[in-house]
């Protein structure tokens, strides 16, 4: 897997795993949600999920993107995927309620937010 994964667990418990591992049955998310990366946009860029939902990001652009937690102005250490090549996927599972921003640090205009409810 080409993706370098750095996981930091702060106040919120956040589990990050590769889509491949998840497809093989790792983890037990309560639901799934997909975010596509296409035309330099996260779609949907705003989503609301229940805690424990597995959210899979798939890059459909023929260029690399990244996925980081927070915003360019206020990054957090919750999750950080350095490179998402074309046609690759990666997933996160957020277990703490609240609003979790995400962005691509190669294209700072690419941003989104996940609202997690219990």
């Amino acid at each position: 897997m080409h993706t370098q994964v750095r996981v930091a667990v702060g106040a919120a418990l956040i589990v990050v795993a590769s889509a491949m591992a998840l497809r093989s049955g790792w983890g037990a998310p309560t639901a799934e949600s997909d975010v596509s990366i296409k035309l330099f946009q996260f779609t949907p860029s705003q989503l609301e999920v229940r805690a424990g939902t597995r959210i899979t990001f798939k890059n459909l652009d023929h260029t690399d993107h990244t996925l980081h937690a927070g915003s360019p102005e206020h990054p957090t250490d919750d999750f950080s995927f350095r490179i998402l090549p074309f046609d690759s996927s990666t997933s996160i599972v957020l277990k703490s309620a609240g609003r979790h921003g995400f962005y691509c640090d190669r294209h700072l205009f690419m941003r989104g937010e996940i609202t997690v409810t219990q």
């Binding site: 035309l39 330099f40 946009q41 779609t43 294209h107 205009f109 690419m110």
Partner: peptide, 9 residues
């Protein structure tokens, strides 16, 4: 969405 992304690019 494409308009916004294109302008930024």
């Amino acid at each position: 969405g494409a308009e916004t992304a294109f302008l930024a690019l």
